[in-house]
Design a protein around this nucleic acid. Structure first.
Lengths: 229, 229
DNA sequence: CGGATTCCTGAACAACTGGACAACAAGTGA
DNA sequence: TCACTTGTTGTCCAGTTGTTCAGGAATCCG
């Protein structure tokens, strides 16, 4: 996410006035600034909501003048959309498929751990998504209706096949996915609440490990499974 | 919540020009309008966030002119605060205490069911709370630091005593509370997502019953308990 | 009735916001 | 070097927003 991909840009080498080789990559600046702006936008939108975020704030956080931000993203709406494109692409890369042949314990444990890891690595993305959904998903409604629905149904079918084969307790697969989704998401979205209750200043890596251990333990046992290993 | 309490208002009876008896209660109008405004505010704030909500929108939803809204709540911030006072009072009324003498299965099942019921009855309150926390709890930080922390710790101690007495599996009590909190909250906060995935237009009562059954089943089993009855 | 209190509301305003735009600078490739 | 593309930014503007305020209406109660 933080590295700048220039894979498909052509590369030109040129000698400047002092005879040194200089490398120009068209679009390089574009990509670097787009990146900077989107990172700033993620923070601002997550902190203040869509309407509460001003282009000016994003610009300041990115260290650019407002006009320059509007040069890259013609308007605020488009910027918000581009941000979610980024986030969804990032998520898609992480969640691997599952199949009826997999071991239920392994597969569910991996899913839970991956999801907790997402809460740790991309808390802003998680919060942005949450706020968008809470407000009725004005931008993501179509995505929910198509991609998300298929995603959940595909998983649910696999879980159902495990149940049919008697490899786990008969629990509602869709509800199970919601349970995993919400309980893992919680560590990113309600960070402040958790830190306050636990009287901590900030999360540490082992807090997430502990949470993942707890969740796999309780949820797997709740599904009539033993934790793997 | 929707009934208008006038308990402590004095009551005066007067004959008007046509000789009819008329009843006046000072502050009656105030209370009715405060109520209307707060209900409208809940809807608007939940839908658009703090900064995204305009006093104008709240006024329109309440069927009052903007100036009139500002007569009751001198500014936006105070209105937001009054709303949370209402919400927290409402919540406090519902969540009963638990004690080491209680049956763990009964107590946890009741807690889960109450919490799901809250998601059903007051989804807006749940969403407002969620958005506030996600954005760093600028208004509720102090509440989290004091009330919420004590609340969680008190419950956690009781759960720990059950574990010490060998009445349930040794799971982290605080994490267990978070798990119940997040999974139940989810049905209110992520309503749109759930409806989309399940391809429904709106929730029905039995959806919540089903969810509560599922959650008590999995979570209690995850804690090494049998579901009550 | 009549004086006091409570309630209502249109108008005004200063601050802010998203966005347009034109002039200009820097990068690019021959 | 030179023509062209891409990137940069200050300025301007129309619309919105929270809040103030003063005048007036309705309610209250002896």
């Amino acid at each position: 996410m933080t590295n700048i991909s220039v894979a498909e840009s052509s590369v030109a080498v040129k000698k400047d006035s002092k005879g040194k080789n200089r490398t120009y990559r068209p679009g390089r600046i574009r990509e670097r600034n787009r990146e900077r702006i989107l990172i700033a936008a993620e923070e601002e939108f997550a902190l203040n909501g869509y309407k509460g975020t001003t282009i000016q704030n994003i610009a300041e956080r990115a260290g650019l003048p407002k006009s320059n931000v509007l040069y890259y993203f013609s308007n605020k709406k488009r910027m918000y959309g581009a941000m979610f494109d980024d986030i969804l692409a990032r998520w898609n890369k992480v969640f691997t498929e599952i199949s009826p042949q997999d071991d239920p314990s392994e597969a569910l444990a991996t899913f839970i751990r991956n999801k907790v890891e997402m809460s740790r690595k991309y808390p802003l993305a998680s919060r942005l998504f949450a706020m968008e959904i809470i407000q009725g998903a004005p931008f993501l409604l179509e995505h929910l209706r198509t991609n998300m629905r298929e995603w959940v149904r595909g998983r649910a079918e696999v879980i159902q096949s495990w149940i049919d084969d008697g490899r786990m307790a008969p629990v509602d697969p869709v509800q199970l996915i919601f349970l995993i989704w919400s309980s893992t998401q919680h560590y990113a979205d309600f960070q402040v609440q958790i830190l306050m209750v636990e009287n901590k200043a900030e999360y540490e890596k082992r807090d997430f490990d502990h949470a993942a251990d707890f969740l796999t333990g309780v949820i797997l046992r709740g599904c009539g499974l033993e934790s793997p290993r």
